[in-house]
């Protein structure tokens, strides 16, 4: 571990506010939230429904633009990036796991995984090698060519984890990755997260509302009505 605390911080949220407008009604989903997440940390964002967990994760993951405040990732002020630059940044540096897996139905497991690698301009052989290595790492060595529709929820979620991690992102974001899974499949997913967190020092930010998930993570961030508790 380095001593310099600044370079240990991978994401920093500074006074992030996100307000939605539903017609005339103002919904203040996040209010002036500041937070630092360290490199290699496994963080859980928790809180009751509607507390702003997803909204916060979307700000951190550059999927949304805060109404005010900034997100700094690896010392880069992302508020200065154009949409196109953000897209490029997400492609190269960030990984996402969605609650409903969000795999592309026309593509096989391995194609889903190497899609983002291909987009980074790597050659096909390289992509396929990395993708199959990733699928083996998540325990799907026998499903490389299968379509998502032929897989169980847990298997699909593991494909989506492989997709999110294939390009070695600096941060992995996961919004309730286990919400649609039974406890066995949930455990597999969480154990995978922990494995990548420990072995590869993968930074992970995960939204969850299951209390038993806390034993897998390093730190818990609690939100209530858009503010940190």
């Amino acid at each position: 571990m380095e001593n310099n605390t600044e370079s240990n911080v991978i994401i920093e949220a500074q006074n992030v506010t996100r307000t939605f407008w539903m017609g005339e009604v103002e919904v203040r989903a996040l209010r002036d939230v500041s937070l630092k997440i360290k490199r290699g940390e496994f963080v859980a964002i928790m809180g009751s429904s509607g507390s702003g967990k997803s909204t916060f994760l979307n700000q951190l993951g550059l999927l949304d633009i805060p109404t005010s405040g900034t997100i700094i990732i690896d010392s880069v002020d992302t508020s200065r990036m154009s949409e196109k630059e953000k897209g490029e940044f997400r492609l190269r540096n960030l990984g996402y796991v969605f609650q409903d897996y969000a795999l592309l139905p026309e593509l096989s497991a391995i194609e889903n995984v190497y899609l983002s690698l291909m987009m980074q301009g790597k050659n096909k052989e390289e992509c396929q090698k990395a993708a199959s290595a990733m699928l083996i790492a998540v325990g799907l060595e026998d499903r490389l060519k299968q379509l998502p529709s032929k897989m169980s929820g847990g298997q699909q979620q593991r494909v989506s984890i492989a997709r999110a991690l294939a390009h070695k992102p600096r941060v992995l974001f996961a919004d309730e990755p286990c919400a649609n899974l039974d406890s066995t499949a949930s455990k597999q997913v969480l154990e995978l997260f922990r494995k990548f967190n420990k072995e590869e020092e993968q930074t992970i930010v995960m939204v969850t509302h299951e209390d038993w998930h806390v034993e897998y993570v390093d730190r818990i961030i609690r939100l209530k009505d858009g503010v940190l508790e």
């Binding site: 999927l63 897209g87 490029e88 940044f89 997400r90 492609l91 996402y96 969605f98 983002s116 987009m119």
Partner: peptide
């Protein structure tokens, strides 16, 4: 989703 991943 494709856009989120960062596909052009």
């Amino acid at each position: 989703v494709q856009k989120a991943i960062g596909i052009d």
